[in-house]
């Protein structure tokens, strides 16, 4: 792979005790998205769709927060 290889995402975030669970969340999150997509396609009600979409969004924000919280070896 070309380009810079960054390793910043391996450094535990502020909540190092639980931070490592977030990496594994990528697989789980796609499963949540698949369920949400399935609920939409099968024609679930407005409330169900909104709830599934909101759960997915919050999970993505949590994972993003983990990455934002990680210390970066940028060497400026």
């Amino acid at each position: 792979m070309s380009g810079r290889r960054s390793s910043w995402f391996l450094i535990p975030a502020r909540s190092s005790r639980f931070g490592h669970y977030f990496e594994q969340m990528a697989t789980i999150l796609f499963a949540v998205l698949l369920v949400a997509g399935w609920l939409i396609v099968r024609g679930s009600g407005r409330g169900t769709v909104l709830a599934a979409w909101t759960v997915s969004l919050v999970a993505i924000l949590l994972l993003f927060n983990y990455h934002v919280g990680a210390k970066l070896p940028l060497n400026f």
Binding site: M1, H20, T27, F30, A31
Partner: peptide, 27 residues
Amino acid sequence: FLVIVAANLVVVFLQAGFHWFLPPDPD
């Protein structure tokens, strides 16, 4: 669209494996 979401699920599982951490250089 659903097939693409499912494919992403499989691929990211293959990439991450059973580990808590993704490798520093995902290669």
